[in-house]
Amino acid sequence: MTLTVNDLRVHYRTLRGEVRALDGVGFDLADGEILGLAGESGCGKTTLGKSLIRLDGRMRHVGGTVTLDGDELPLSDDRAMNAYRFHKISLVPQYSMSALNPTRRIGRMIRELLASRGVTVDTDELHRRLALVGLERDVLDRYPIELSGGMKQRAVMVISTLLDPSVLIADEVTSALDVSNQQAVVGALTGLRDKGLVTSMIFVTHDLGLTSHIADSIMVMYAGKLAEKAPTRTLTTEPRHPYTKMLIGSLPQVGARYKDKPLSGIEGSPPSLLNPPLGCRFRDRCPLADARCAEEPPVVEIAPRHSVACWKAA
């Protein structure tokens, strides 16, 4: 299995113009690979995940291609995408905990969902999968309101992986969880991969510490574009893009206190994606910016499997 995303551009239509949320992103996902996806809130992570599953009415596929095992995905053709959705590519959406139908017990919801895809539930397998994420069977008899945030999150994860997709996109699945459940979910996800139930994974999270423990490689996006992608160890120990460096630099030391020394984030905010400025999108916040950065930096492979979009990194 290989997924190849090439210069993908997906914009949102709004009354005020197009929001260029995904503006030329390319990468490969290899067989068995877990790719961590990180970046500032609003940089396009969820948009990337949605683009590989279903474009909603406001999303427009402006350019680029996505190829799965040599087949180009018909991104703009909602019906043709049905052949891929859930079976080949599945998504655990961000905030999926609020997407559960409040009038249905979890078990019935799963049966109905699978029936709509022409599959019947293998109860034993379902129980095994629940156990894998640390849920009791009795959640099947409960309504969503009766579960805590983290329990709902795990239930959706089980649902999304029941059909053993080749590619699983997990959007912030651990963000609502405490550390012990994070360990359980990460263990479950790697377990699904190791057992071959899911071939490869895109693991979206803002938590770089956690990503570093599950991902084989990490991709960092900034304002709709790729900033840097590298094997996990390389990215976390020798980042080359100024944004990646600053993001890693803003991770707190455990035990830090405001009273002793306030931490600081990265000054400023990302540019508007409605009419983004030309040139490097990190320019206004970048300590290394100079005249050349008014021109857009290309993505350059500076070492095997290590790509960076910055004039100063090459």
Partner: peptide
Amino acid sequence: TSMLDASTRIDVLN
């Protein structure tokens, strides 16, 4: 702050 990146999270906490 659970859905925020490290830098934004610090801004909100400050």
